[in-house]
Amino acid sequence: MFDFILSKYNYWIYVILMMIGFYAMIGKRNLIKKVIGMNIFQTAIILFFVSTAAKRGGTLPIIEHGHGHGAHAIQATAYINPLPHVLMLTAIVVMVSTLGVALAVLIAIYRRHNTLEEDEILRQQQK
């Protein structure tokens, strides 16, 4: 039982982080809070993907003595999995561009409605 908790607890913490971000996205009324929640949500998913790459007993995915002769064979179990790192590097950059566009839309909304609270914007649009 203790081994089961020890090998799975970080997945549960990622789910809790994702729940915090999801609650901020659908439960909070301020638009900047929603953007912060979206950031937390995306970071939790990226954290989950990076954690699938971890390997017990493996080092960083940088080959030792790589500029030498290269005579020694490379063991795949000695290095952690590099592929999720590459994909998540792309995802981080996409996350920041999403953040930039979301904040630009938010500034445009503020110039038009002069508020950032969702219920006040809806009330102004129903008039």
Partner: peptide, 20 residues
């Protein structure tokens, strides 16, 4: 899900040894 840090998880068995 496979255990955290398991060297035999499906993610580190399929194509990643070839890349490494």
């Amino acid at each position: 899900m496979p255990d955290w840090g398991d060297p035999n998880s499906p993610a580190s068995k399929h194509v990643s040894p070839g890349y490494i």
